[in-house]
Design a protein around this nucleic acid. Structure first.
Length: 240
DNA sequence: GCATTAACACGTA
DNA sequence: TACGTGTTAATGC
């Protein structure tokens, strides 16, 4: 199962982005037309199969990565200690800029939880935009800022022992409209996958979801969760 | 007590 | 058919 292949799906079977895919990349729309056209040509897209790694601890990055569709997770597993999932990475997310900026090796793994479509902006293009595009810099700065809040919230989640609250906080994080604009109001995630992210059994996640549904914050759908009251969900999260 | 695993029926893609 | 959901029973800390 763990093949020794050192390349990601983007390295081995990349294609150009379709117009529909380009339209869903929010930061692309903020660029000046000349930059936008050039970057649209440079962007690479590939399908990642369940379990495939997009980032591997110790390897150096060659792309800034985005989720077009599907679901990824960031974890620490590979080496020693208990497997710890840091976060789920839903559609619309762009990540890995910290590692690119520092010219370091990855300190985490990212792998597909299910069949996913991922996009990659080559490292040279990423740095060229940083050097020349103010709109791009604004986007990256805002993203870094929003994600700082996410990581602080994630630390709180770890300290919580109330399973219902843990699920609520994880959902609130995944429905973040700035970091994950591709999610919208329907997050496609199974209760099994949510359990893996939160660290609970599927049965307990099911119970927590029904509690949240009874309070009118979400609606459980087949293979996903719809948020009905994002403000309420976030309030519930800050309540404790 | 509370969460987990195992097992099952049932519905959906 | 394969997968996701809802539920119950037995087990463990």
């Amino acid at each position: 199962m763990a093949e020794a292949a050192a390349v990601t799906p983007l390295h081995r079977r990349a294609r150009h982005a379709t117009p529909a895919e380009l339209a869903d990349i929010v930061w692309l729309q903020t660029l000046e037309p000349a930059d936008r056209d050039r970057v649209a040509e440079e962007l690479q897209v590939a399908e990642a199969h369940p379990g495939e790694l997009l980032c591997r601890i110790g390897r150096t990055p060659s792309y800034w990565l985005g989720v077009v569709s599907g679901l990824l997770k960031m974890n620490n597993d590979s080496s020693v200690g208990a497997p710890v999932t840091f976060t789920g990475i839903p559609p619309g997310a762009w990540f890995g800029e910290g590692t690119l900026l520092k010219h370091e090796a990855y300190r985490y793994n990212v792998q597909a939880l299910r069949k996913s479509t991922v996009a990659g902006l080559p490292m040279a293009s990423f740095h060229r935009l940083l050097d020349n595009s103010i709109p791009f810099n604004r986007f990256v700065m805002r993203q870094l800022n929003e994600r700082l809040g996410q990581f602080i919230a994630a630390r709180e989640i770890d300290r919580l022992n109330d399973p219902d609250l843990r699920v609520a906080r994880s959902l609130a994080a995944l429905f973040h409209p700035v970091l994950y604009p591709g999610v919208g109001s329907l997050l496609r995630i199974t209760q099994q996958e949510l359990g893996m992210l939160v660290g609970l059994s599927r049965q307990r996640v099911n119970e927590a979801l029904h509690t949240l549904q009874r309070s009118g914050l979400i609606r459980i759908e087949y293979g996903g969760v719809r948020v009905l009251d994002l403000d309420g969900l976030q309030r519930q999260v800050f309540h404790s």
